[in-house]
Amino acid sequence: MNKIICASLIPILFSMSAVVFAKDKCDLNIQADQRILKLLNNKELSFYDYDNFCRELRAANASIYIEGETTIAYSQDTAIAIATATARLSANEVEDQGLRLTSRTYQSYLGYKLARTSASEDEALYFAVNNAVSRINQTMLDELNEQRKSLKTYVDKK
């Protein structure tokens, strides 16, 4: 069973929250809106090599910043729930100062369900979030570290 720990952050634009999801012995820090956090509270992220992925992000002191949207699309014959999710990496060490330092690139995913209910929207959103997060890669970690170096250089010059 997942253990969930909630922590409040300095409000940034859209009242974000941080939640740590524990799967086995690895905690993963995720920042998202309340709807996504609720989905992930009910159903954990699940993809190939999750534990190794989680350990690498922890070692890099990185969080996952997730944004997602859903809509119900209507046409003459069908209606579907469509969801998109975007995941990028964020540096933990500057969050407590109210700063957001993220990877330049992100992973996104578009999913859908052949139904037009709130439940199908949630299913499509979970599927999109899970797939976007599972596509985070080493290039994004490298970019985040480049951003960290740039910030340190900038601060050192001041």
Rank of each mutant, 00 (worst) to 15 (best):
R116F: 00
Y106F: 14
A128I: 05
K38I: 02
I66W: 03
R58L: 11
E93M: 07
I136L: 13
E67G: 08
C26F: 00
V94C: 09
L37T: 06
I30S: 05
T153Y: 01
S17Y: 03
T78E: 09
E143M: 07
L9R: 14
R104H: 09
Y126W: 15
N42Q: 12
A79T: 11
I10V: 11
K38N: 13
Q97N: 11
E123T: 08
N52C: 11
T105P: 00
A18C: 09
A81I: 04
K149V: 07
N130W: 00
Y65I: 04
R58F: 01
V133Q: 12
N52Y: 08
L28G: 07
D96G: 10
K3Y: 00
R58H: 05
E143G: 05
I64V: 11
C54I: 05
E56Q: 14
D96L: 11
E93V: 01
Q97I: 06
Y48H: 14
Y126C: 06
Y74M: 13
Y126I: 03
F53L: 10
E56S: 14
L114K: 15
V19L: 12
Q107H: 13
K149R: 12
A59F: 02
N131Q: 12
E69Q: 14
D142M: 09
A73Y: 02
A132W: 03
E95C: 07
K149W: 01
V19Q: 12
N41D: 03
D122G: 02
I66A: 07
N52F: 03
F21M: 10
Q138L: 07
Y106E: 12
S75V: 01
D51N: 11
I66V: 15
K158W: 02
A124P: 04
M16Q: 13
S15H: 12
